[in-house]
């Protein structure tokens, strides 16, 4: 399923978690590189050019947020953050400064693999510039060439902004899109702090696409962080 050559850099100071990651990931065909320090992680990221980075926020020598920021200065490699309860602010900062997704400890290996797949797919898509013309998730079907949206084969009329919002989530389907990114890409850089626009339009979109807007199947909220378009 995964190319055996996919190399993952693990920057995490807890040896037990490193062990669990190493064992589980190699079991699923990934090869791993490990370090317990942020500084060394940066060097390894530059020297080894991994395909994905798993980064713990609570490192002993430097802030995980800074590691993410520094990597982003020269590389688009997908970064998945591991955060503990109580690091919500750092998590959002790291995501806003370029990390792709996050997992809150403790997490299951299935969750991790799903996040990694989404992040890797987005990376290769961006790199190769390919575009799927049709997106399908459950009963939702979006024809991006014709800009048409269907639920249960019934066409749904969206306003331009609603469509743009949905499209932005589809571009990163399965992955987390932060509020900042959505506001910037859908409304413009001047709207970075106008979170209420997002609430109102996301509410409208759910009313049009979801069976029960209060128990959404596709448009999932991560309160205080962002949104995710669920594929399964």
């Amino acid at each position: 399923m995964t190319e055996p050559s996919t190399r993952v850099l693990i920057i995490e100071d807890e040896p037990e978690i490193r062990r669990f990651l190493r064992v589980s990931l190699s079991e699923h065909g990934y090869s791993t590189l490990e370090t317990g320090e942020g500084g060394e992680g940066l060097t390894m990221a530059a020297a080894e050019r991994p395909d994905l980075v798993i980064l713990d926020l609570g490192l002993p020598d430097m802030d995980g947020m800074d590691v993410a920021k520094r990597i982003r200065e020269w590389s688009k490699v997908p970064i998945i953050i591991l955060s503990a309860r109580g690091q919500e602010t750092d998590k959002v900062t790291a995501l806003d400064s370029g990390a792709d997704d996050y997992l809150t400890k403790p997490f299951g290996v299935q969750e991790l693999l799903a996040r990694m797949r989404v992040a890797l797919r987005k990376y290769t898509q961006v790199a190769e510039g390919e575009k799927e013309p049709i997106f399908i998730a459950g009963k939702l079907r979006v024809d991006m060439a014709k800009r048409l949206v269907f639920v249960n084969d019934e066409e749904i009329h969206l306003t331009p902004i609603e469509y743009k919002l949905l499209h932005e989530l589809i571009k990163n389907a399965g992955g987390l899109v932060t509020q900042q990114t959505l506001l910037r890409n859908v409304w413009g850089p001047g709207y970075a702090k106008e979170g209420h626009y997002l609430r109102v339009y996301m509410g409208n979109l759910r009313r049009k696409l979801e069976e029960d807007p209060a128990q959404p199947q596709y448009l999932i909220t991560e309160p205080g962080v962002g949104y995710r378009l669920r594929m399964s």
Binding site: G195, H196, R199, V200, M202, G203, R206, P213, A214, Q215, P216, I220, T221, E222, P223
Partner: peptide, 15 residues
Amino acid sequence: KDWNSLEEIVGAAIT
């Protein structure tokens, strides 16, 4: 604090 939708937050909790 920020302006939030109750429906959205309750939905997130259920999820």
